[in-house]
């Protein structure tokens, strides 16, 4: 109990202070506002700023890896903005470069499957797949994180188990089911498959996040009179914003870029999604590199824009989460 006693003096007694004289203490007004700058000549500064060989090597490797990553993207961009004649020799030949939007115009209204329509189709599939997964995922993750119920561990294990299955395996069963119930070659069917496929990791991800929310917050809300549902809506959901935003971005990217599921479940060309349309753009006689590049850039744009838009909320959510 004594450590709690505010009266218990902790400083050394007055005698020891007096022995060393007044010199030991710096008067308060002598403390500078900013850290004193060091007086150094140029030679020392240069030496201090020059990296060591080891450091140079590390930077070299890091930069090389970064370049290796970025080069294909640069190539894609270059190809999408230039006529086919210029890029057939390789996009890195920069002499006589012409910048044109021709590829984009053609891709947008490509006759077999116009990119414009394909992108819109993709949006129709992606938005519900993301929103429903977020809502259902949060609703399923909450009890797994905070409640006690029979078979909790078993059920959770089952979810993990399903996640381990490869999409090719799932596809066969789903194909038959969708045919049976007449949802084959419909967006509803595809959306349901995406939701089911996404729920596994979303529940796991959100559960782990929700475990980190202190239980006192819920108890406080319970005492304040909130029902289970009110706690979920007014406390748990707002506090999970950062996790939900992560889920949205990742699930969006996954559904948007998904190639396999649309390939299996969508047959009518007018219902094709963007990733399905891309291979069609190859052309008959000659590979239309420029067209494909433009189509790829258009397809890639959506997840990137979404991420940029949500980054703000992402950060805000993070701040709210740590500010206890």
């Amino acid at each position: 109990m004594t450590e709690d006693n505010p009266f218990t003096p902790t400083e050394p007694s007055a005698e020891t202070r007096a022995e060393t004289g007044g010199q030991r203490y710096t008067p308060v007004d002598e403390i500078p506002d900013v850290a004193p700058s060091k007086e150094l000549d140029w030679r020392t500064r240069i030496v201090a700023a020059t990296p060591t060989a080891w450091r140079v090597l590390k930077y070299g490797v890091a930069i090389a890896v970064a370049v290796l990553w970025i080069v294909p993207f640069v190539g894609l961009f270059m190809a999408s903005f230039r006529p086919l004649g210029e890029i057939i020799q390789g996009w890195w030949h920069l002499e006589g470069m012409t910048v044109t939007l021709e590829n984009y115009r053609r891709a947008w209204s490509y006759q077999t499957a116009p990119m414009g329509r394909a992108l819109f189709n993709t949006l129709i599939v992606t938005v519900p797949s993301v929103l429903v997964v977020m809502l259902l995922g949060a609703m399923a993750a909450y009890p797994f994180a905070k409640f006690e119920f029979p078979l909790k561990t078993t059920l959770f294990f089952l979810i993990l188990l399903v996640m381990a299955a490869p999409p090719e395996l799932v596809a066969m069963g789903n194909y038959n089911t969708l045919r049976e119930i007449g949802l084959f070659d419909t967006y509803m069917g595809l959306i349901l498959v995406h939701i089911g496929w996404g729920l596994g990791w979303v529940v796991l991800f959100l559960r782990n996040y929700l475990l980190g929310i202190p239980k006192e917050l819920e108890e406080a809300a319970r005492i304040d009179g909130a029902s289970r549902y009110q706690i979920f809506r007014t406390i748990i959901l707002p506090l999970s914003t950062p996790a939900l935003v992560s889920v949205a971005v990742i699930q969006f990217t996954w559904v948007w870029n998904a190639f396999f599921f649309p390939l299996v479940f969508m047959r009518s060309p007018e219902l094709y999604l963007a990733p399905q349309v891309l291979p069609l753009m190859r052309g008959r006689i000659q590979v239309e590199w420029g067209l494909m590049a433009a189509g790829s850039v258009l397809t890639m744009a959506a997840p990137v824009i979404l991420f940029l838009l949500l980054e703000r909320y992402y950060k805000r959510g993070m701040v709210a989460a740590v500010a206890d």
Binding site: P214, E216, L217, E219, A220, A221, I223, D224, G225, A226, Q230, T234, I235, P238, L239, T241, A320, A321, A323, D324
Partner: peptide, 26 residues
């Protein structure tokens, strides 16, 4: 009953006013 917790258990996503208003709102 009203309870004050050791770590206060304030709702971090709400302003002070919203925090205090929460039990009334509910």
């Amino acid at each position: 009953v009203a309870m004050v917790f050791q770590n206060y258990a304030l709702y971090p996503h709400m302003s002070v006013r919203e925090n205090i208003a929460y039990p009334l709102k509910i």
